[in-house]
Simulated assay, not measured.
Amino acid sequence: MKVNRNFDNLVPNYLFAEIAKRVNEYCSANPDKKVIKLGIGDVTLPLPKIAVEALKKGADDLGNKETFKGYPDYEGYEFVRKAVSDYYNTFGVKVDPSEILITDGAKSDSGNIGDIFDKDNTVLVTDPVYPVYVDSNIMAGRKIIYADSNESNGFCAMPNEDVKADIIYLCSPNNPTGSAYSYDQLKTWVDYANKNDAIIIFDAAYEAFITDDSPRSIFAVEGARTCAIELCSLSKTAGFTGTRCGYTIIPKELERDGKNIYKLWYRREATKFNGVSWPVQCAAAAVLSEEGQKEFKENISYYQENAKIIASAMDELGIYYTGGKNSPYIWLKCPNGMGSWEFFDYLLENANVVGTPGEGFGKNGEGYFRLTSFGDRENTIEAVRRIKELLSK
C-alpha cells in the first residue's frame, strides 16, 4: 500500500491551523489577556432573519410526509438556481439557471474542480494566493507557476504572454490582498486564456463587497464564456460560513479537449457529492430574494465600516495598504521592515491582536500582513486603538 507522496510537498500545517496553534498557546500562557482576533475571515453577525425563517420552514418540511425531501437534484433545486440567476441580473450579468450548480461552498469547489482536469496541466496562480488553490494542486501533482502581485502593480498580477498556462486561478476582490481587478485587467486575462486554450477558475466569493465599477463576475467581461468557470459562495455575502452553500457557474458552450466542461463537472458532482440539504437551499433562495438582499447588504455595510476604521488607522500611521474599499481585508506592509511572522508575534504579544502573516500566502506576502473587518464593531475599534498606540511609540 502506498500513500499520495505529493502530500510531502505541502507545508506541514495549513496556514490558519498554525495561527490557531500559536494563539491558543499564547492564551494558555496568558489567561488574563483579552486577545482580539482579526485574522481568520469568518463572519460574526448572525444570519439574515429571512434565511433563518427559511431554514426553520425547511426543517419543518422534513418532519412531514407530504413535504419531506430526500436526495436533492445533483445540480441543486431549480428554484435556487433561478434565485442565483436573478441575483446576477441585478448587476447586469446574464447566466442561465441551467449553467449553475449549487454546492457547499467556493473553498471545496476550488479544491475539487481539479478532478476534471488532467494532472499534466500547468496551473498558474497569483502570488500572494489563497492557499487552497496551491495546496489542492500540489496534492494532485500538478506543476504550478506564479504571477507576481506586488506594490508595483497594486497587487493585481497580470499575465506574462511568454508563459503558457492551462489552468488559471483568479480571485477578485482578492483574498488576501483586497485588491480588485478592473474590467480592462480582467479582459487581458480573458484574452490570454482564450489565446492559450486555458481555463480561468474565477473565485468571486467577495463580489458583494465591491463598491466601484470593478466587475462582480468574470462573465461581465467579453469573451469569458469561452474560457471561464466562476465559483461563488454565500459565506461572506450572507454569513453562510457555517451553513455552507455556494455555487459554480459553467457556460454550457465551454469545451476543452473535445469535452464539455459542464458535463464533466456534473459527472464529478453526481459521483462524489450528494448535494446541499433542503433547509439550506431554502435559506439560500430566500437570502437572494429582494428582501434577503436588503438584509445581507446591511451586514456587509457593517463590515465595510469596520474596514474603513482599520484603513483610516493605516492612513494615520502612514502605512501602505491595499483593500478595505472593495474587500473586507486590509493588506498592510509590516512596519519597520518586520517579517510577517515577526509582526504577527509582535502584535499578539504587545497589543493582543491577531492578524494573518502575509508569508502564509506566498513569497510575495513576506513583509505584509492581513487584517479582517469581520469582527464586531467594539472589538475592531479597540484593536485599532491598541495598534495605533503600539505603532506610534
Rank of each mutant, 00 (worst) to 15 (best):
K49C: 04
Y183I: 07
K272E: 09
T322D: 02
E53R: 09
T188A: 14
L390F: 12
T177R: 04
D184Y: 15
P159M: 08
Y183W: 10
N364E: 08
Y87G: 00
G92A: 09
T248W: 01
F209L: 06
E290F: 04
S301F: 06
V11A: 13
G292Y: 00
P176H: 12
E305C: 07
E378F: 12
S182M: 07
D73P: 14
K56N: 12
T44C: 08
N352T: 10
C232Q: 13
G141M: 03
A285P: 04
P131I: 03
A165H: 04
G111Q: 14
I249D: 00
A224H: 02
N364V: 01
I310K: 00
K252R: 14
N326V: 05
I229G: 04
T248V: 15
G324H: 04
V3W: 04
E255R: 15
F296K: 05
P159C: 10
K236D: 13
W331C: 07
E316N: 14
I19C: 04
G375Q: 10
R81I: 06
A307D: 06
Y368E: 04
S152W: 04
Y346A: 03
K333F: 02
I116M: 05
D197R: 11
L391H: 08
Y146W: 11
G114Y: 04
P31K: 14
N9W: 08
T372D: 05
K56E: 12
E53D: 15
A204K: 05
G178A: 14
L317H: 03
R370V: 11
